[in-house]
Each structure stands twice: as structure tokens, then as C-alpha cells.
Simulated scan of single mutants.
Amino acid sequence: MMLPTHALIGLALAGPLLVVAPEFTGVALVAGFLGGVFPDLDLYAGHRRTLHYPSYYPVLAVLALAIAIAAPSVATVGMATFLLGAGVHSVMDVFGGGLELRPWLETSERAVYDHYQGRWLAPKRWIRYDGAPGDLLLSASLAVPLFVALEGAFRTVVIATFGVAVGYATVRRVLPSLADRLVGAVPTPIRRYLPNRYVETA
């Protein structure tokens, strides 16, 4: 799934606090957003392996959530929401496409690396690829209620995030061809520093 979808999911995870603990909503929204984004910081360094932990994040999130419930504070609520966002991101990537540059071709059986099991989890392709129409629909289904529920800067974040989702989904199918051309112009000694999915198509 595309990064904006994960970011919106991270925001949505903080939604219940609007009702049960509004004093922590702000920190939870920020932490949830950051947690939803965090795993994809490994995009150019072992994508879906270096910072994706589909087994460990959820366990840590449950423990952090228990601590936050027992001793609620900005720190404990923020940590719990961050780990929830990162955990949901890591798990949900299994339900998308594989790691290949053109995931709609379904040539890769690598979705997310599970460090606990020591192997790659296969993509389920419920959403065929990042930026697919189904992915954009999921983003919209999250953005609309968030837009209604939130105010001020957070509402602006929702609008901007969904705007990025629309833009990415619009150009997603042409990005691999653009990448092929750009990588082809990169000097050979430098290509070894690029992710394999780019180099293999050049």
C-alpha cells in the first residue's frame, strides 16, 4: 500500500482518544501518523525488511498499550500509538502486492520480511499494488471521516496526505518507465547503491 494510506491509518488509530481521552488526542495523532510512516523509511535500504517487523511491532504495541492504559501520559500514549501505527503498517503490507517495480505483473512473492520466522511473507494482493484504485479507495474511506472529526492543523494534514495519495495513484503506472530511463542514465559504478528492483530493470 502507498505511504499516504499508511499515514491515514496511523491517524485513524488515534481516533478513539477523541472520545475516551481527548487530552491525549494531539500527541496520539502525531505519533500515529509518524508510526504509520516510519517503516517506509527503509525504502532505499532493504525495503520492507530493515524497518518492517510484522511480528515484533504488534507485540510491542500491545505491551505499550497496556502501559498507557495503566499509566496514561504523553509519553506512554505516544509510544503506544506510534508502535500501533508501525505494526499495522508492517502487517498490512502483506495484503498488498510484492516488491517488484511493477507489482501488477505479480512476479514477486516477497511482501514483507518476518524477522521472527526468518523468511519473506508472500503478498496476498487484496490490494494489487501500491497506488492501485483499491488503495486510493481505502485512503478516501479513511480521509473523509478524519476530515470530519479533526480540526485545524490536523485537518490540513488529512487534506495534504490525501492529495499526495491522489497524485501518486494518478502517476503510479508510469513511474516504472520513468525509473528505467533515469537508472539507465546513472553511471554503472553508482548503480550498485540503488535498490535491486530498479537496477534489475535498467
Score class of each variant (00 low, 15 high):
residue 75 A to F: 00
residue 118 G to W: 04
residue 96 G to R: 02
residue 31 A to M: 13
residue 25 T to C: 11
residue 99 L to H: 04
residue 135 D to F: 11
residue 181 R to I: 13
residue 108 S to N: 12
residue 197 R to D: 10
residue 144 V to P: 06
residue 94 V to M: 11
residue 192 R to K: 15
residue 83 L to H: 01
residue 160 A to L: 15
residue 134 G to P: 06
residue 47 H to F: 07
residue 74 V to H: 00
residue 128 R to M: 15
residue 175 L to G: 05
residue 77 V to M: 03
residue 95 F to C: 05
residue 69 I to L: 12
residue 126 W to V: 14
residue 31 A to Q: 10
residue 190 I to Y: 08
residue 41 L to R: 05
residue 192 R to P: 13
residue 166 V to C: 04
residue 16 P to Q: 10
residue 50 T to L: 15
residue 130 D to K: 08
residue 139 S to P: 01
residue 112 V to T: 13
residue 186 V to M: 10
residue 136 L to I: 07
residue 14 A to Y: 02
residue 72 P to K: 09
residue 113 Y to V: 04
residue 76 T to H: 08
residue 160 A to V: 14
residue 138 L to I: 14
residue 77 V to R: 02
residue 54 P to L: 05
residue 69 I to A: 14
residue 82 F to Y: 01
residue 101 L to N: 06
residue 166 V to D: 08
residue 86 A to K: 03
residue 110 R to P: 09
residue 106 E to W: 11
residue 183 V to L: 01
residue 26 G to Q: 08
residue 3 L to N: 07
residue 156 T to Q: 15
residue 153 A to F: 15
residue 193 Y to L: 15
residue 75 A to R: 01
residue 14 A to D: 02
residue 123 P to D: 01
residue 181 R to Q: 12
residue 58 P to M: 10
residue 84 L to W: 05
residue 20 V to T: 13
residue 115 H to N: 13
residue 195 P to C: 08
residue 114 D to Q: 05
residue 83 L to W: 07
residue 22 P to E: 04
residue 121 L to Y: 07
residue 93 D to F: 02
residue 196 N to E: 15
residue 86 A to P: 02
residue 53 Y to A: 15
residue 172 R to T: 14
residue 109 E to G: 14
residue 46 G to Y: 03
residue 167 G to F: 06
